[in-house]
């Protein structure tokens, strides 16, 4: 891994159009970096919910679960990537799955950058200053959405309108995947139950 691989995401988040172009056509993106960013976001979210200042931390410490927090970030991430790939394949998108993962991962960089410092800063804030904390968190989220928009647009070579439509469809497809997944799981469970019951019945009869 070269030093430029590490500094490239920082360039990308401030020059998204250039950055995503280079990511796609100059091969500057690395899947590994995207996954590291994802990991950083997970870690900073966990740290935030555990160690953010008392005035901004409304989490019940008895109900914090790092595994659940990890899953609530990692699962939607890959769900997004898969749905986005599925929908863009049908809608003449030019992006490969690898590029979608990279685009999404690199879009998360502002979150990874802002969450940790704000967690530290929140411990030194009084009530009136917490507005600043929430402002910065909103900035991180908006920045992420904007980057995701530019990333999708560049990677698939879409127009702005088509990108918005695609993103909305991606969210819908995420829902469909979750629905189908639950359906399959529930059916599989019933089928297994059925077989187990027959086996039990037979074994009791003999």
């Amino acid at each position: 891994m070269k030093r430029s691989d590490l500094s490239f995401p920082l360039h990308l988040i401030v020059h998204p159009f250039d950055g995503y172009w280079d990511l796609k056509y100059d091969g500057r993106g690395r899947v590994r970096i995207a996954l590291i960013v994802l990991g950083l976001v997970v870690v900073s979210t966990i740290v935030q919910s555990q160690y953010a200042g008392f005035l901004v931390n409304y989490n019940d410490p008895r109900q914090l679960n790092s595994i659940v927090q990890l899953l609530t970030i990692v699962v939607p991430f890959f769900l997004w990537c898969v749905s986005n790939w599925s929908i863009t394949t049908l809608l003449d998108g030019e992006g490969k799955f690898k590029e979608i993962v990279m685009a999404t991962g690199y879009a998360l960089v502002p979150m990874a950058l802002i969450y940790l410092p704000m967690t530290v800063a929140s411990r030194f804030m009084v009530m009136e200053e917490t507005a600043f904390y929430y402002l910065m968190l909103s900035v991180a989220s908006l920045w992420f959405v904007a980057l995701l928009f530019v990333g999708t647009m560049t990677v698939h070579q879409y127009t702005a309108l088509k990108t918005i439509v695609t993103m909305a469809l991606t969210v819908a497809v995420m829902g469909i995947i979750v629905f189908l997944g639950t359906l399959v799981a529930s059916m599989a469970q019933q089928m297994i139950e059925f077989v187990v019951n027959i086996y039990r019945e037979l074994s009791f009869r003999t």
Binding site: K2, R3, S4, S7, D22, D26, R28
Partner: peptide, 9 residues
């Protein structure tokens, strides 16, 4: 120093 990495390409 070396030029910034992203300008080189």
């Amino acid at each position: 120093g070396p030029p910034p990495p992203w300008t080189s390409s």
